[in-house]
Design a protein around this nucleic acid. Structure first.
Lengths: 243, 243
DNA sequence: CGGCAAATTGACACATCTCAAAGCCTGTGG
DNA sequence: CCACAGGCTTTGAGATGTGTCAATTTGCCG
């Protein structure tokens, strides 16, 4: 069972891979698994011995709140090609759970293989490190968005980012993509109430920026959406360079 | 000029360092520099060839907003021992500036030395990686706080975190620490207006949770403050383990 | 057709922002 | 030692953004 080609595209968009790096990646032993909407992919647990990568669909990092079992906060979304909980390999474990958004497929990679890569493949190690740092840059951008954008613009920013990330790995084009997020889940991501998310969605529709029915989103006016969101993709680090 | 002992304490709190690792760290060639309040330590620039570590004081990651030159958002605070822009080594550069909060001293480390570490010191490499991942966990926690806490509790969470991080490296004790942040800067961190920050500070004072005058903060009721903020230090990954 | 979950809408309460003004501290020059 | 200036902090009042609750509509699936 070979590692997803999405991840290789993700890396090749940012650096070139040597033949040895490519072979090492393709030789990874993985286990595949499928999940339905809301299923827990990686439980909140600090003893996991493998990390997972998205193959198909979306996943989210879901934080429980102490003393409020009904509420949760989603701090990240992951698209195909993302190495979702790579950080669980270096840290003592996860401080949150990873759940499926819509139906999803993932591949698990044992931490022993990652340790081996850090011992023998320094360049590949830096690229894995890079992947976790891009996640961190996304976190920072979400903080910037949360602090500086009102609801519609904040939602618009999320949509610009997700579309761009899907587009990078070839999972979306022509402004169209599938976003199987409930408005309740969007609320957990943006930090608003579900009702307010609804108003933001309607606002973007009323402005003629997009069409959105069920899970199908079509961006009608990219320029307008990106301007409203003050979106600038620099933080996704899409330059190709030696690392 | 030797690397800061703070960083070694930071690492030793989370893993044990071999004699070889310690020697490599202490042999790092560094350049030291001092800054006054508000000075730019690392400009917004994608061509920096060295990374900096906090020696004394605080620094912040400051994001400019497109089209709003007067506003900015601060997405991270760094205390002594933090390897502030280590991620600039692996990424194409920074998407933000690093500025001094109060007066500060830092040490710069050339990226060539970091590359050399990734080639020859896999365990040390994983620890550097870990440091950047703890920063990412802090970002996530800030997102959780922003989405789930109201102003006073949100401010309380920041104070609990900064005190804990200062305490870990031995830069604060007995609930007392120096926080040379203007209320305007606190506003840029929390995503509130300076006026609202002021009301939050007053609220914490009125509840008898802390004393705060100028840059001097004394936490009078840690339990109360942590409860209000729903603070749980797990995300700072303070367990000692092999990585 | 019926039933359920999600999406949508309206009305009102609460949180936070903005603008304006007053009070406080500190450094400087007389 | 005092007077002053400037920046920061503090306070007040009204405008805007967002949350909550309740009800209705929509869309999917049995």
């Amino acid at each position: 069972m070979a590692i997803t080609e999405y991840f290789i595209r993700y890396l090749q968009r940012r650096d070139s891979l040597s033949e040895a790096d490519l072979q090492r990646l393709r030789a990874l032993k993985t286990e595949q698994a499928s999940y339905g909407p809301g299923d827990v992919i990686v439980p909140f647990d600090r003893t996991e011995s493998r990390s997972c990568m998205m193959l198909r669909g979306l996943s989210a990092r879901s934080h429980k709140l102490v003393g409020r079992p009904d509420d949760r906060v989603i701090t990240a979304l992951h698209v195909p090609g993302d190495f979702v909980d790579l950080h669980g390999f270096v840290l003592a474990g996860l401080e949150h759970a990873v759940i499926a958004v819509g139906s999803a497929e993932v591949e698990f990679i044992g931490h022993d293989q990652l340790t081996e890569i850090t011992e023998n493949f320094p360049h590949l190690t830096r690229l894995l490190w890079m992947a976790t740092l891009i996640d961190a840059a996304v976190h920072r951008q979400w903080l910037v968005a949360a602090a500086s954008l009102r609801s519609s613009a904040h939602l618009a920013h999320l949509l610009c980012e997700i579309y761009t990330r899907l587009n990078v790995v070839g999972a979306a084009a022509n402004g169209q993509f599938s976003l199987p997020l409930l408005q309740r889940e969007l609320a957990d991501i943006l930090g608003y109430s579900p009702i307010h998310v609804n108003r933001a969605v309607r606002d973007l529709r009323d402005r003629g920026l997009l069409r959105w029915s069920g899970a199908d989103v079509t961006i009608l006016d990219w320029r307008g959406l990106a301007t409203l969101a003050r979106f600038d993709a620099t933080y996704l680090d899409l330059e190709r360079r030696n690392r």
